[in-house]
Amino acid sequence: MKKHKVTQVRHLTDSTFVIRFERNGMEFQTGQFVLLGTKGAVDRREYSIYSGENDDYLEVLVREVDGGKVSSKLKKLKAGDLVDVDGPFGFFKFDPQSFQVQQFLFIATGTGISPFHGFVKTHPQLNYKMIHGVRKVEEAYDHDDFNKERVTLCTSGEKGGDFDGRVTEFLKTETIDENTNCFLCGNSEMIYEVFDILSEKGIPTSNIYTEVYF
């Protein structure tokens, strides 16, 4: 476990923020997560790395969970504070060279967009499509960092996104080539449903990669 200094906190909505902290030489592969907590705290949590492999800092995208032990403390961080970081961990690693077919579909709910932000930042030439499910339009976290034409924002709580409704409803209307490499990240309910839909569409299990947040 190492101490890293926070250099910036960007609040994207009332509850969601990006914490940037010193990288201190940590090597990682985009898609991995770190264990993060405030300095000296007993509790730490997993957070996907939001920044790219080539950035000289590390970033995570965090949503404060109601009554959450760690996320509420992280929300109070300011530049100059220290955080405890351990990692990187995980096998949701992303190296486009290791895929025979260069065609990717990213499906996220909420802050589940975080690893995909890292993927795209690290590999800007990627042939991808992303479906991002949120409740409100304001939760389109840093969508400017993605190619607009490749992204579908599904809003379930209000109109104004690219699609009014849940990710799963949108996905049902889509045709997906069975060679597509599908990456799913976010809450398990969405991942379960999407897994079924993709299976029905003939995508083999070996082409589906998942990261469950809760």
């Binding site: 096998f91 398990s188 991942i191 299990t205 070996s206 469950v212």
Partner: peptide
């Protein structure tokens, strides 16, 4: 079950 394995973060599937 593949879905339970995902939630367990086992990183292996039945295949």
């Amino acid at each position: 079950d593949d879905k339970v394995l995902m939630r367990m973060n086992r990183k292996h599937n039945m295949e």
